[in-house]
Amino acid sequence: MLNLDLWFFAVAGPAVLFAGISKSGFGSGAAFASASVLALVVDPGLALGVMLPLLMLVDVASLRPYWGRWHRREALLIIAGALPGVALGAALYRVASPDVLRLLIGTLSVGFVAWQISIKQGWLRIGTRQMPDGAGVIAGVAVGFTSFVSHAGGPPAAVFLLSRQLGKTGYQATSVLIFWAVNIAKFIPYAFLGMFTLETAKANLMLAPFALAGTWLGVRAHRIVPERAFFALTYVLLTVTGAKLIYDGLT
């Protein structure tokens, strides 16, 4: 049962606002935390059901500012892997514990940031080449699965996209396109699993302004923040979300 009281909106409003800013401005890496925050006040399954339509709203609102600025090859590689990943998530949602996957993805995310820092500092002089196309498809499977079970597809997508050395806006636009497609693919399985109710629909209508406000703020923040600072913040978000996934997996 979803209780739409003042406490719910005190928690959900800022969480949705944060998701909009993260998705529309900084590559979606930390947007998954909003579902985790929302799970503090509602059942986790309902939290996922509440968040998905709001994330889709942010996706649609973010498409126009970044239209045509994405890197189509990288996006298609991840989407190609994400579709079977979503199907796998739907098939295993009722029986699979996502904790092990959270632990693996979190470790990969934090390890990737440490690896990139080591290269930039000159501590390592190997592994500077871009990840191959096949790695994008593999990352896509992780994106689809983790996005389905916890809206946590941002970190595996970031690992691959950052390795391809895209520009600031190209990276952001590609991320927007990827999750627009992935979230559409998740909608029907979520409906069949009973994750949408009349209460979640009411919550969506009342929280939609927070999602749109977050999108507006995120797009403008993206334009203001310099490229070097953008990627520094992206690495910070990837580290924080990776650490949170590790913590969730262990606890």
Rank of each mutant, 00 (worst) to 15 (best):
I246C: 13
A90Y: 11
S62M: 05
P155V: 08
V42I: 15
L177N: 08
L55Y: 13
Q172F: 00
M56S: 14
P156S: 10
G89M: 08
A33H: 02
A19H: 06
S118I: 02
V137S: 01
G153T: 06
P155F: 01
D248H: 00
A232I: 10
A80F: 03
L166Q: 08
A35G: 15
E227G: 09
V41D: 01
L245C: 03
L124Q: 03
F26V: 07
R72D: 06
V225E: 03
F192R: 14
A203V: 03
H151K: 11
N204D: 12
T107M: 00
T169N: 11
I78N: 01
P84Y: 10
A142G: 11
T174K: 08
F192T: 14
R94D: 14
R129A: 14
G25A: 04
G214V: 10
I126W: 03
L104K: 10
L6T: 15
G134C: 10
D99N: 11
Q172S: 08
L52P: 02
L250R: 00
L4T: 03
I224A: 10
F18E: 04
L83S: 09
L237V: 13
A185S: 13
A33W: 01
V159P: 06
A12F: 04
W123Q: 11
R64L: 14
H151V: 07
G140L: 05
L198N: 10
D248E: 13
F9R: 02
A203G: 04
K186N: 12
L92Q: 00
